[in-house]
Design a protein around this nucleic acid. Sequence first.
RNA 1: GGAGAGAUGGCUGAGCGGUUGAAAGCACCGGUCUUGAAAACCGGCAAAGGGGCAACUCUUUCCUGGGUUCGAAUCCCAGUCUCUCCGCCA
Length: 428
Amino acid sequence: MKRKLNKKNMHNIKDIRDNIDNFIQLISKRNVKLDKNNIIELDQKNRKLIKEKENLEKEKKEISKTKNKALFQKSKKISLEINKINELQLETKKKLDNLLSSIPNIPLNDVPEGKDDNSNEEIEKKGTIRNFEFKPKPHYELGTSLDMMDFELASKTTGSRFVFIKNKFALLERALSNFMLDNHINKNGYTEISPPLMASENTMFGTGQLPKFETDQFEVKLDDKNDRKFLIPTAEVILTNMVKDRILSKKDLPMRLVASTPCFRKEAGSYGKDTKGMIRQHQFYKVELVSIVEPQNCVQELERMTKCATGVLDLLKLPYRKIVLSTGDMGFSAEKTYDIEVWLPSENKYREISSCSSCSSFQARRMKARYKNDKKETLYVATLNGSGLAVGRALIAILENYQEEDGSIVVPDVLKPYMNNLEKISNN
RNA sequence: GGAGAGAUGGCUGAGCGGUUGAAAGCACCGGUCUUGAAAACCGGCAAAGGGGCAACUCUUUCCUGGGUUCGAAUCCCAGUCUCUCCGCCA
């Protein structure tokens, strides 16, 4: 289905109109400057043209009702006039839409203001950082010497930023994925989904990957040039869009979905960043959580979701910290984001392993995802997404935090049932 | 890849040139009845946009885009998607 992307806005012009100064001020927190006069002008012109058009349409309608042949010629003339005005109106509307769709979501009040990640704030630190009696090795050294991780082979078959995971590491990866899934399904009330790994252009637009971040996406080459499909950069895209173009009833909410899928990212703009090891790959597994809720429940759902994510780290006994992203570091669609960072001994620092965001109704507007509330009003839903967790990075964290001096890896207790009760991964 | 059938409101489904924004049913909401519930009966129930303080009112919308017509859910053309049968295939 081909759709005009700019038909939809992430911001409602009605709300902006009501208090434009306030709106501009809120958006300025995200380092985006808006041209007030331009917005007002386009909005007024648009409405003026709509009015003109509607008056003519009414006149025309009445003529056809009378079935008076004498007036038929006039009706034809009116049609031409309508066409002219309509063209102008659509053009104006398009300009307005383009302008509005370049504006990111409004941050919540309690989000720290700042230009970049320097203004992020640490909220919580948990778990015990292990005191190593030897120099902890990075995951890629552990993996290579056990012959369970092969980067050279991957670059031979595919290219850079890919990896072969072999033998017990592959089992560990699978165990992690299954462990997390079971946890979210059985304890946290999420429903498991096995979704398509490709998404249409319109779907990518819904969650905000398109049109602005097209260069980060892998596009699949298709015979039909009008048909565009992309490998999902995260299951968020496909899970969130499950409610696209729907009007849900209240009893469908909250909807909580979980999927473990490969994710594909170009990592454009990350050249030279994390080139060693599997921290930053073009392909990685991730267990993704998505919640569809009533807008007023956004904040509490974000807290809940973040707890679901950190709960996994608690069970794996991995040390981590939780930070809240500043207005300058948040993603385009988010109103508030928590990042969870896991401790990596080889780097002697915390690295992102999960990101949980509330997007309020921002994505829902693009997707036209709505529900009927108690008063039977049709409102946009709110969407949230979070990693629960990034499997690739969880694997790294296990390897580094559970390594022994001889290069073997102790299997965390909670994973043993998923690994035929294996105690330790070693060369033997 | 070949051959057909279809796309209508939250859902199912009628309508196939003129008060049709759209029958009927389900779901949902309100009421009567009931100790309470169910059943039965009565009533309500689309979205987007414009105008109005408001009650309200106007316009658009029956997959999308074009065309025919004074007038299109209904006719014509193009496209998208779905289903059935055959072929191919994990």
